[in-house]
């Protein structure tokens, strides 16, 4: 049954032993023409500045396609490596799968509980203890409070930080933080595990332990996506690899072949993708008109009202002598219609 399929889908692993069984598995990640576009020159994105520029000059927006025309399918239980040069869009692709960013075009479906080792210890707070941070981090990653409390000892044991667990984590070293973060992330029981260069911190022993943990997940049938620059690790974990460059998939296939091709391409300088990822848009006229009107009306109302009240207050008080203490107290008392303070105020007046 598989012949026609495997010809149609060239990206499927053909060599690995369990690939036969995985071919029957349902696709858990499916990308169809996915593109992600970022706005450039964001350091200038100030509302007042943008609106004024929109209103009074020809306003362009510059965009950068971090990913474009991405098509692939990943089946349940597969482990896939994403490799490619810096800035190729690997982290962007993982973020799309983790649903922290959303595609500009195309469709991406992800089925199952995703645990992202994008950055260890997201949401850690330096003033809280290790234990408190495990709770915060775990809940943020999608566990319930009860689940975390049940796994607390296990998490602490895995991190090997028993002695420091009730210390504020601002006193931890970065390696200790990574241990704590990984231990929480690894306790989430993911169906899809995403790892982005996260394991490079921590000492050799802990790295090895983390690798073992990931291999355990793999054995349990967890789908794994793995970004790394250590190509040696790729063949250790992954059945399949995608080679990304300039936001496009250059090659896809069995992990070892793709790694070899990647190294060859790097040597020969053949990493260019066929397309330039930049794009410029000029804003339509109605947006410019709307911007002009918004600015003018906002300024008009506030400044107009301010000027009106300032001027009319001067008109009312023009020619009046500066009130001396007695007059002022009297006037205030009249204004307030205040009965109980009357005698008091008069007594105090000279």
């Amino acid at each position: 049954m598989t012949d026609a399929n495997s010809i149609a889908d060239a990206t499927r692993p053909t060599e690995s032993i369990d690939s036969k069984s995985k071919m029957d598995c349902p696709a858990v990640i499916r990308a169809n023409g996915v593109g992600k576009r970022y706005e450039m020159h964001r350091h200038r994105s100030m509302l007042l500045h943008d609106a004024a520029k929109m209103a009074f000059s020809k306003y362009e927006k510059n965009y950068f396609w971090a990913l474009r025309n991405i098509d692939f399918e990943i089946r349940k239980g597969e482990s896939v490596a994403l490799i490619g040069p810096n800035g190729a869009g690997k982290s962007t692709l993982l973020s799309l799968i983790a649903k922290t960013v959303f595609p500009t075009e195309g469709s991406l479906t992800v089925e199952g509980r995703v645990s992202a080792l994008l950055e260890l210890g997201a949401g850690f707070h330096p003033h809280f203890t290790g234990r408190e941070n495990i709770l915060i981090n775990g809940i943020v990653m999608g566990l319930t409070k009860a689940e975390i409390e049940a796994r607390m000892d296990e998490i602490i044991a895995f991190s090997e930080l028993e002695k420091f667990i009730d210390e504020p984590i601002q006193n931890y070293s970065s390696g200790m933080l990574a241990r704590l973060g990984f231990s929480v992330a690894a306790s989430v029981d993911p169906e899809i595990l995403i790892v982005d260069e996260a394991l490079s911190v921590g000492d050799a022993a802990f790295q090895e332990k983390s690798f073992q943990r990931i291999l355990d997940f793999k054995r349990q049938g967890c789908t794994i996506l793995f970004v790394t620059h250590a190509l040696g690790n790729v063949s250790r974990f992954c059945d399949r690899a995608l080679l990304l460059s300039h936001g496009q998939i250059l090659e896809a296939g069995p992990a070892q072949d793709i790694c070899d091709n990647y190294e060859a391409r790097v040597r020969e300088g053949r990493l260019d993708a066929p397309r330039l990822p930049y794009e410029t848009q000029v804003l339509p006229l109605w947006k410019r008109v709307a911007a002009i009107l918004t600015i003018l009306s906002m300024m008009g109302v506030v400044i107009g009202a301010g000027i009106y009240f300032v001027l009319s207050s001067m008109k009312e008080t023009a020619g009046m002598p500066e009130p001396n203490a007695i007059q002022r107290i009297k006037r205030l008392n009249e204004n307030n219609n205040n009965k109980n303070n009357d005698s008091d105020a008069l007594e105090r007046a000279p």
Partner: peptide, 11 residues
């Protein structure tokens, strides 16, 4: 304030 969290975790 929660930039790290927003960038790394889907909530």
């Amino acid at each position: 304030d929660n930039a790290q969290l927003v960038k790394k975790v889907a909530f």
